[in-house]
Simulated assay, not measured.
Amino acid sequence: MTVLLVALGAAFGAPSRYLLDRFVQARHDSVFPWGTFAVNVIGSFLLGSFAGLSTQYFALLGTGFCGALTTYSTFGYETVRLARTGSSLYALLNVILSIIAGLLAGWAGLALFS
């Protein structure tokens, strides 16, 4: 049953990630990956918010939805791409800002909802 809950959450998280990423990125004329940054920070906040849920709800919303919403692989790819195309400052900012904002967002979600 838990696997089905994770899959159901992921079925909503993945398209949400794509749509939110495209929505945010389309509004910025910059090489900085604002869309990926936004989904990862929002996902960190939500995951912190869901931390106190029961195991089954956490499987659905935390592991499933947030797991599919957030994306470490795209963050890594975009950071390397920035560095390789001569945007090393943006690559460094992406790493620093993503880590700090993600941790703060997760902490805020945990503090507000636990």
Rank of each mutant, 00 (worst) to 15 (best):
Q56A: 14
S54V: 03
L60H: 06
S44W: 05
A68S: 12
L82T: 01
G62Y: 10
L53M: 14
G48F: 13
T70R: 09
A68Y: 02
T71D: 09
R84G: 01
S87H: 15
G76D: 06
T63Y: 08
A83I: 10
T55Q: 10
G86K: 01
A59D: 07
T85K: 04
T63W: 12
G62T: 04
V80F: 12
E78C: 04
S44F: 08
E78P: 01
Q56M: 07
L53Y: 07
T63R: 07
S73R: 09
T74Q: 11
G52F: 11
Y77D: 00
F65W: 13
A59T: 02
L61V: 09
E78H: 11
A68C: 06
S87D: 15
T85P: 00
G48Y: 09
E78A: 08
Y77S: 05
E78S: 05
L60S: 05
L82P: 00
S49L: 10
S54N: 15
L61S: 06
T55R: 13
Y72H: 07
S44I: 01
A51W: 08
S87K: 08
S54H: 14
G64M: 11
L61I: 01
F75T: 02
L47D: 02
F58L: 09
R81I: 00
G67V: 07
Y72M: 14
S44A: 15
G67F: 09
C66N: 08
L69A: 06
Y77K: 06
T63Q: 09
T55D: 14
R81N: 13
A59G: 04
T79G: 10
S49K: 00
T79F: 08
T79R: 04
S49G: 14
L47P: 00
L46N: 03
T74I: 06
L82E: 12
L46I: 02
Y77Q: 09
R81V: 03
G64F: 11
R84E: 15
F50H: 05
R84A: 14
Y77N: 08
G48A: 11
T55C: 01
Q56I: 00
A51E: 13
L61H: 04
L46K: 01
L69D: 07
L82R: 01
C66W: 12
L61Q: 05
Y57D: 13
A59L: 12
S87R: 06
Y72V: 12
L46A: 08
S44T: 02
A51Y: 14
G62I: 01
L53G: 03
T63K: 10
Y77L: 14
F50N: 03
F58W: 10
T70D: 13
Y77R: 08
L69C: 04
T74E: 06
S49F: 03
L82C: 10
A51M: 15
Y57S: 14
G52L: 04
L82K: 02
L61P: 02
S73D: 07
L53R: 02
T70P: 07
V80C: 05
F45Q: 03
L61K: 08
Y57Q: 15
S54L: 04
S54R: 12
L60C: 05
S49I: 00
Y57C: 10
L69M: 13
E78L: 02
T79I: 04
S87W: 07
F65E: 04
T74C: 07
G64P: 02
R84D: 15
L69R: 10
